[in-house]
């Protein structure tokens, strides 16, 4: 936009004379206008909850990806006393070295039983109870390149040499989880858009109703030669104020909710909950966007109505 038009445009949106305008004072004291900040506040709050839920899911997905990327697990069932008649430890070492020497494997490491017990604790209870339980032994395998073909080939080679050993491909359930996560994330974003759109529709409806209510005065102003921006200016200060206050209310309540969750959930709140780093920019962008969009909706609504007649 050329600078010559930006300055008058800014001046127009920043003008303040509420009480001297013929409709401004009436419009800003109407009940619909008085509750408008609260309606906008609720919608901004909902939108922020949705967007932060969506971001939490995104963060969790990112962590899953990092944890599970390109990793498969080789499971040795506990019943197998010795692989191929070999003594336990020896057969195990040969399995490890077999895996390590395989072309498709970059790393193979047994999960120490202590860590395994820790992982199983929620299901089996503390280490004391696990003592003596026949636990499977697990080997984490990082592959150079993970695709179905490479995994199938490794599986074939493995079962040829160690028939009782199982190869657990994380990718199947990982992909399922990722898909569920993405769907939830999508729902969150759609809900955010719906909340913001609802707030904007309410602004548009409020302006439409006010224009109908004051139709005779607007008609009078037009006959007197008022231009579109003069009539828009009647409604601008109240809507600007309502959307600024509403956006702030929504943001503040959201920040309070977040702080409360942080305090209450201290220690066991999952990592990645709530916005991280740059995502905070999004949190502040949502109310700002709504504020600006409400002004745009105001202008579009009024000009659309006024342009129905020359």
């Amino acid at each position: 936009m050329p600078k010559g038009r930006l300055v008058p445009l800014l001046r127009f949106f920043l003008r303040t004379e509420v009480d001297t305008t013929p409709l401004g004072s009436a419009f800003s004291s109407e009940r619909a206008t008085v509750i408008l900040p609260w309606v906008i506040g609720v919608m901004v709050y909902l939108a922020l909850l949705m967007v932060s839920a969506s971001m939490s899911i995104d963060n969790t997905i990112a962590r899953w990806r990092a944890d599970l990327a390109d990793r498969i697990t080789v499971v040795v069932p506990p019943a197998v006393e010795g692989l191929g008649g070999m003594p336990l430890t020896e057969s195990h070492n040969s399995l490890l070295s077999f895996l390590r020497s395989d072309v498709s494997v970059s790393r193979a490491e047994e999960i120490p039983s202590a860590k395994l017990q820790l992982l199983l604790e929620p299901w089996l209870g503390t280490a004391a109870h696990v003592e003596g339980l026949p636990l499977p032994r697990m080997i984490e395998v990082d592959m150079r390149k993970v695709d179905s073909v490479a995994i199938a080939q490794l599986r074939t080679r493995l079962t040829e040499n160690f028939p009782q050993v199982l190869l657990d491909d994380h990718r199947f359930w990982r992909n399922r989880l990722l898909a569920v996560g993405r769907i939830l994330q999508g729902i969150g974003l759609v809900a955010m858009i719906v909340a913001l759109a609802t707030a904007l529709v309410i602004v548009a409806l409020g302006v439409q109703i006010a224009m109908s209510k004051h139709a005779t005065t607007i008609q009078l102003l037009r006959v007197m030669g008022a231009d579109d921006s003069y009539i828009t200016a009647q409604f601008l200060p109240a809507v600007r104020r309502a959307s600024a206050i509403g956006s702030l209310i929504g943001l503040l309540v959201f920040l309070s909710t977040y702080a409360l969750l942080r305090i209450v959930g201290d220690g066991f709140a999952p990592q990645g909950m709530g916005p991280q780093d740059w995502q905070w920019a999004m949190v502040f962008f949502v109310p700002l966007f709504l504020f600006l969009a409400a002004l745009a909706v105001l202008v579009i609504t009024i000009w659309g109505r006024l342009r129905e007649a020359p």
């Binding site: 009436a26 005779t216 006959v223 007197m224 030669g225 008022a226 020359p310």
Partner: peptide
């Protein structure tokens, strides 16, 4: 011609006394 800008500036050169007054009641 229905040119809005032209019509608006012309309307400003006309004064109208309406049959039913058309007072803005809250002013």
């Amino acid at each position: 011609s229905k040119d809005r800008k032209v019509l608006q500036s012309l309307r400003r050169r006309i004064g109208v006394v309406f049959q039913e007054f058309r007072m803005v009641s809250h002013l």
